[in-house]
């Protein structure tokens, strides 16, 4: 089969681009540990699943809030509900690394801090985890970005970074 010289160049270009993108995705996933905000590895949870009707008696959701786990490293256990978050305010020291552990007690909610990479879904029965380092001081707004009902636009919480 005869292939035009220029055609060979652009086929090579396309294949090289595909290979580079796949390679970078592989490096990000397996070497740098970047993964979608899901599949909790928390010791008390079975593959990131939780019974949404028994959150009050299920660890760690029986005690939602901020918990220090290391040197300027925290775990923020939060429950999203219609129409708010429990707790509705958390204070984080400047430069802290925060592991968000979030679930929903009713319907699907969103969890977004505008201007950051913190943006995920809080689903009933599923535990979502995401880590973020707060390098900038200030007040951060957390919004629900999944339509969850009539009070959806009122659903928010505040993160104070001091």
């Amino acid at each position: 089969m005869h292939i035009h010289r220029l055609e060979k160049i652009w086929i090579g270009f396309g294949l090289a681009m595909l290979l580079i993108f796949l390679l970078l995705t592989g490096v990000a996933a397996f070497a740098m540990g970047i993964s979608p905000p899901s599949s909790s590895s928390h010791e008390n949870m079975h593959h990131g699943k939780v019974d949404p009707t028994k959150l009050q008696t299920t660890a760690p959701f029986d005690k939602p809030g901020l918990k220090q786990i290391g040197d300027n490293e925290y775990e923020a256990v939060l429950i999203a509900y219609a129409f708010g978050y429990n707790p509705d305010t958390i204070d984080i020291p400047h430069g802290a690394k925060v592991h968000f552990i979030v679930t929903s007690s009713d319907v699907v909610h969103g969890f977004e801090i505008p201007g950051t990479n913190v943006n995920f879904m809080a689903e009933p029965g599923e535990v979502t985890e995401l880590t973020h380092t707060f390098d900038k001081a200030g007040q951060f707004l957390v919004l629900c970005n999944e339509y969850c009902g009539t009070g959806h636009e009122m659903m928010k919480m505040t993160i104070n970074v001091k």
Partner: peptide, 9 residues
């Protein structure tokens, strides 16, 4: 195929 090549690039 010069034009096609430029478009692809």
């Amino acid at each position: 195929l010069k034009g096609t090549f430029i478009a692809v690039m």
